[in-house]
Simulated assay, not measured.
Amino acid sequence: MIKLLHVDDEADILEIARMALEISGGVEVVSCLSGERALVAAKQGAPDVFLLDVMMPGMTGPQTLAALREVPGLADVPAIFLTASQHDGKETELLAAGAIAVLKKPFDPLTLGDEIKKALNGN
């Protein structure tokens, strides 16, 4: 069972992703509406992977990832970003920030679990 910490400021996206990932099997999802909440949740139970929205009020996805990396035991947890941004260089920038993959919004709920598992397997 993969424990995934999903951070997005839109509750409907959190819910759709949670349902899709739990249906795909093998994924337990912890959902947070902000980077600040994610820090609290991550300290309560270390996740196996982070799934982070990029653009959020308060702490952005990259800022959230940087803060999560400071929590003891979480420095090496793989991170995947979700972004609606289509501009050139954004994916490169996010990979440089420490992500193992960048997935596009809107995502396909039917393939989201497979895309995350592929990223975790280095594909």
Rank of each mutant, 00 (worst) to 15 (best):
residue 25 G to K: 12
residue 9 D to L: 08
residue 31 S to T: 13
residue 16 I to D: 08
residue 19 M to G: 09
residue 99 A to S: 08
residue 99 A to W: 03
residue 52 L to N: 05
residue 24 S to M: 00
residue 71 V to T: 12
residue 35 G to M: 09
residue 104 K to N: 10
residue 10 E to F: 08
residue 115 E to T: 02
residue 59 M to W: 06
residue 95 L to D: 10
residue 46 A to K: 13
residue 20 A to Y: 04
residue 112 L to V: 04
residue 116 I to Y: 06
residue 62 P to H: 03
residue 28 E to R: 12
residue 15 E to S: 09
residue 52 L to H: 04
residue 21 L to G: 02
residue 76 D to I: 00
residue 23 I to C: 05
residue 45 G to S: 09
residue 41 A to T: 02
residue 109 P to E: 10
residue 98 G to N: 14
residue 105 K to A: 00
residue 53 D to F: 02
residue 2 I to C: 00
residue 116 I to M: 11
residue 40 V to P: 05
residue 101 A to S: 12
residue 87 H to T: 13
residue 105 K to P: 00
residue 21 L to Y: 03
residue 29 V to R: 05
residue 110 L to H: 08
residue 41 A to R: 07
residue 77 V to T: 14
residue 43 K to E: 13
residue 26 G to Y: 09
residue 51 L to W: 01
residue 38 A to N: 04
residue 56 M to W: 10
residue 46 A to L: 14
residue 122 G to V: 11
residue 69 R to W: 05
residue 88 D to V: 11
residue 39 L to H: 04
residue 105 K to E: 01
residue 15 E to K: 09
residue 2 I to Y: 06
residue 20 A to G: 05
residue 70 E to Y: 00
residue 97 A to T: 11
residue 9 D to S: 12
residue 71 V to I: 15
residue 102 V to E: 06
residue 59 M to R: 10
residue 65 L to E: 10
residue 8 D to E: 14
residue 113 G to F: 09
residue 30 V to Y: 03
residue 8 D to T: 10
residue 101 A to H: 07
residue 41 A to H: 01
residue 115 E to K: 13
residue 74 L to F: 05
residue 74 L to A: 04
residue 27 V to K: 01
residue 89 G to Q: 03
residue 96 A to R: 15
residue 84 A to W: 05
residue 20 A to H: 03
residue 77 V to R: 04
residue 32 C to P: 11
residue 85 S to Y: 13
residue 54 V to Y: 08
residue 122 G to H: 09
residue 64 T to L: 11
residue 73 G to T: 15
residue 44 Q to G: 15
residue 73 G to W: 15
residue 90 K to T: 14
residue 20 A to W: 03
residue 113 G to Y: 09
residue 55 M to E: 04
residue 47 P to V: 05
residue 62 P to F: 02
residue 116 I to L: 14
residue 37 R to G: 15
residue 30 V to L: 12
residue 104 K to M: 08
residue 34 S to C: 14
residue 107 F to A: 12
residue 21 L to C: 11
residue 28 E to T: 14
residue 113 G to I: 07
residue 39 L to M: 10
residue 74 L to T: 05
residue 26 G to T: 09
residue 18 R to F: 04
residue 11 A to P: 15
